[in-house]
Each structure stands twice: as C-alpha cells, then as structure tokens.
Amino acid sequence: MENELKQLIIETLDLEDIGIDDIDSGAALFNEGLGLDSIDALELGLAIRKKYNVKINAEKEDVAKIFASVSALANYIQSART
C-alpha cells in the first residue's frame, strides 16, 4: 500500500526525478521533507478519490494529519475503506 501510494504521488505530481525509494514513508510530504505545496495536496486528494474512492473532507477532518506522511496517508485510506 505504501509503495503504491508513493507511485501514485510520483505520477500524479510529475516528480520525474524521484523514485519510490527516495520517499521515506515516515517523512513529511509537505513543506519540509518532499517539499510539496497546497496545490499538490488538492491534486493528491483528487487522485486518491479516483483510485481508492476515498473522499477527504477538508472541513471535517484534520487534513494536515492525514497528509503528514505516506504511512499516515496509507493508514487513513485503509481505515476509510473498511
């Protein structure tokens, strides 16, 4: 699941020079770490909705926590699907 998410992040966000081994599952995705921004968060939210049919509601949920890292995101998607 985590590697699948990393691949989705790389393809969705055009991170041409990055491979799945370059993304640390526990490291921050935004600002520090991978350095993604708010537009990337929206784009990633859309890709997750399309691929996993999981909708992240920015008004009801703690988006910063959900998107904190690849492992946090994977945990959220798995719990939302079950």
């Binding site: 537009i39 990337d40 929206l42 784009e43 859309l46 909705r49 399309k50």
Partner: peptide, 9 residues
Amino acid sequence: EELSPTAFS
C-alpha cells in the same frame, strides 16, 4: 472527469 486543481491554477 474531475478537473485537476493544478491544471486549473
């Protein structure tokens, strides 16, 4: 299809 937020911006 849904619109890409990046493409829109």
